[in-house]
């Protein structure tokens, strides 16, 4: 049950152009840096990327956008990235904007084998266009579908050869659900530890959801807005 691969290049080797990929993270927090860097050095293009955000101009998914490797983004918030906005307004990039909670639940549902469900978010807005609407308990809801992907790429603080993962602080965000929703899930971790070392009570993502895992290196862990009280 050893799922360890050598590095990011080996982990992404199976990814082909025009694949659908989920990438964990919120802003730049908890993004799979090593894998994104490896993708940006590859010739893979035409990707459909499902990620809450789109990185910044020169880091995270911004690197893939700059090289026009992404055909379509499925996200909830894409500010703080001028190249993204430019490609969107010029029509070079297809974008599907989804309310954040709906996006999270669509991924969770996809991974959990739930094909569709109803939520109130977006009723009466352009998000509701073309969607089935149904009333429950006097409130209007939209039918939303579960999301899966050819690959999910997630990042955790700790992991082991079984694929068990533990996240740190708010770097969990979308990683935990995306790990469930990838047909193949790749996990990169800051510290790969021997099997048995992680406390089973503290595991966020059980190893069954992960197919490949590697010890990442040279984490930059860039911060978008450093705010301090001093």
């Amino acid at each position: 049950m050893d799922k360890i691969v050598k590095n990011a290049q080996e982990a992404i080797a199976e990814i082909k152009s025009n694949s659908t990929i989920m990438l964990g993270g919120f802003g730049l927090c908890g993004i799979p840096e090593n894998s994104i860097n490896a993708l940006s050095k590859s010739d893979i293009s035409g990707l459909i990327c499902i990620s809450n955000n789109a990185g910044v101009d020169d880091f995270g998914l911004g690197l893939l956008l700059k090289k026009h490797q992404i055909r379509k983004m499925i996200s909830s918030y894409v500010g703080e990235n001028s190249e993204f906005e430019r490609q969107l307004l010029s029509g070079e990039l297809e974008v599907d904007l989804i309310p954040q909670g709906t996006l999270a639940e669509r991924i969770r549902a996809g991974g959990a084998g739930i094909p569709a469900f109803y939520v109130p978010a977006g009723y009466g807005t352009e998000v509701a266009e073309g969607k089935e609407i149904r009333e429950f308990n006097g409130k209007m809801h939209l039918l939303e579908y579960g999301l899966t992907a050819d690959f999910a790429i997630v990042k955790a603080k700790y992991g082991d050869a079984y694929g068990n993962l533990i996240y740190n602080e708010t770097a969990n965000n979308f990683n935990n659900m995306m790990a469930m929703a990838g047909k193949i899930t790749i996990a990169e971790v800051e510290e790969l530890v021997p099997v048995g070392e992680l406390n089973p009570n503290h595991i966020h993502t059980p190893g069954i959801f992960v197919q490949k895992i590697f010890q990442g290196k040279d984490y930059e862990k860039r911060i978008e807005f450093i705010t301090t009280r001093d």
Binding site: E105, E169, N172, N176, H204, R222, I223, I226
Partner: peptide, 28 residues
Amino acid sequence: VSADLINAGKQTVTAIPGAAFFDSATSF
């Protein structure tokens, strides 16, 4: 300052004693 600890505006923050962390599906 921790790169792993931010608010929804992507600013660095701290967590109070008794805080809890969770994934986005639980949050929503």
